[in-house]
Amino acid sequence: MADTGRQTLPLSFTVNGTHYEIEVEPHELLLDVIRKRLGLTGAKRSCDVQVCGACTLLLDGRPVSSCTLPAFEARDKDVLTIEGMAQDGKLHPIQEAFIEYGGFQCGFCTPGMILTAKTLLDENPNPTEEDVIEYMNGNICRCTGYKKIVESIMGVGKPNAEAS
């Protein structure tokens, strides 16, 4: 069944509200399409084995590791990246909370942290600290800034009493 011509697949999908019709080869990964072809570099390639969460994107609202997901899996789906969180120039409340509570150090894991926090809060608007720790355990912060990240997620929509 040798086939010398390279196969392409139509990929019709929405990214951060914008509709795209492109063609991809079966082996192209969603992370590469988003970063290299659409120029959205918020999602990072880090561990490349679905462990760290730096490449997290939301596919129809569900978190996926885009480093190991073929782009064709996004057919007819809505992709949300960190670039799509702010609306009309206004940051999303989760982004505001990460600033308010200092939920990052180097920032490399932050896009994945914020997108995963969004699915957590969409599922469970009032999580306990334990819920947050348990839900977020697949997103790794190599700076180990976990305490502030948990405080940020717990603090969404609430002013930080300790902030000067």
Partner: peptide, 9 residues
């Protein structure tokens, strides 16, 4: 099993 993203896929 694994983590949330792996369980989703």
């Amino acid at each position: 099993v694994a983590n949330l993203r792996v369980r989703e896929v």
